[in-house]
Amino acid sequence: MSATLLELVALAVHFQVKGRELRAVDGVDLRLERGEMLGLVGESGCGKSTLGKTVIGLVRASGGRILFDGEAVEGLGRGGWRKVRRRLQYVYQDPGASLDPRWSVGRSLEEPLVIHTDLDRTARRARVLSTLAEVGLRAEHAGLYPHELSGGQQRRVGLARILTLQPECVVLDEPTSGLDVSVQATILKLLRELRAAHNLTMLFISHDLSVVRMMCDRVAVMYLGRIVEIAPVRELFGNARHPYTRALLDAVPEPGERRVIGRPLLEGDPPDPSNLPPGCRFRARCPVAVARCATEDPLLRPVGPQHQAACHLAEGVSA
């Protein structure tokens, strides 16, 4: 049993948009160690959600490889994929929308067991009830329909649905977006408990840096289809080397402070991802860009222990 559970090698996902090629994911290398929670952050359109969907096979990769527990998933037939799917699960951003409106919660929760196991009806019911209890819902909730649940309860059902199969690795797509802070705290707490109880390996996709900071062991920052920086959470938040990461961290408002509106900001919008400039793709907005950035595309390289950044000037950026 190797330490690495999930590995992405030069993963690429390209879409054709109006005749132009949009590189949603453009050569991503990433390793998820067993039991780790890796945060994947970035702004809308950076490709983080596409990456998550590619990992679980909802989006077809255009290039590169995905290795799950040392085995390449592209070569797997339908049967092989099913085995991987059982161990590798995905939680939708809006679990309310990811539940069939005509199915009761109980039936939706039973479905993965019907597909993947040969448990009989009683055993399935028992598993559903124990999972419901685990995510803090009562047995009565099994009889309700998705629209009868609150936002927080829908998230719980979303988590319960993947837990029934007892997976090893979970991809979470924006698990708390749209929730009130007090509910968010409850769900995050639950995630921590579940992770500890099941020794889950998690890819935590989020745009909320403060949540990622609290939950994850390592953080990868994505910009326009590439990972621009990856480091352990303390290192990234305390010693970011990529100018984009720094700008991102500087833009997060802190309650009780007035830290954002007074300082120099990242100007402009990200460039059109289907029409990228040569060189570094962050160059146009970068406050420290030099001539070299316009010609040479920086690659992810080590800049410290367990710390990689894709910037020619990473050493200089250090605070």
Binding site: A251, P253, I261, E267
Partner: peptide, 11 residues
Amino acid sequence: LDVTIQAQVLR
């Protein structure tokens, strides 16, 4: 809005 854009709009 994304955080970097939010910061611009807030300012």
